[in-house]
Amino acid sequence: MTETPLPEALADIREEFLSVGEKERLTLLLEFAEELPDLPERYADHPDLLERVEECQAPVFLFTEIIDGIVHLHVTAPKEAPTTRGFASILVQGLEGLTPAEVLNVPDDYPQTIGLARAISPLRLRGMSALLARVKRQVRERNAA
C-alpha cells in the first residue's frame, strides 16, 4: 500500500491545529466555524439539492458538486452548532479545488489526526468523520454519473 500525501490545504490545517495548545485548538476551531461560507445564492432556493447529514448532532446539510473536474463542497449548519460548523469549514477549506480522486484519497481518519480528540472528545469528532464520509460518497456518485 502506498501512502498518499495529504492534500496541501488539509496538511496546513493539521499543522495549524497541532502547533497550538489544546485550549487554543478550541479557539481555532471556533475561527473555522466563523469562516464557514454561506451557501452560494444559486443553491439558496434549492433545499432539495442538499443532503441531510444524519450523523451530525445538529441539522447539517451538505452538497458536493464537480465542475470541470474540480470538487466544490457546500455545507450549512446553524449558528447554534459551532462545533459542527467548525468541522464543515475545515473540510470546505481543506478540500476546495481538489480533483475527485484526490478527495477520495483523503485518509478517513484525518479528523482523528488534527489534535482535537482530547480538546473536544473522540465522540464528538465522529461528527467530522461522518461529514467526510458523506462528501466522499457524493463525490463517488457524481463521478460515476
Binding site: 471556533l30 466555524a33 473536544i120
Partner: peptide
C-alpha cells in the same frame, strides 16, 4: 451544552463552562 464551542461564541456574563464529556 451539548455543543462544546457554544459557550465560546457568547455566554451569560460571569458564567463558567462545564462540559459533560471533558
Amino acid at each position: 451544552d451539548e455543543d462544546v464551542l457554544l459557550y465560546e461564541t457568547g455566554h451569560i456574563p460571569g458564567a463558567v463552562k462545564i462540559d459533560w464529556h471533558l
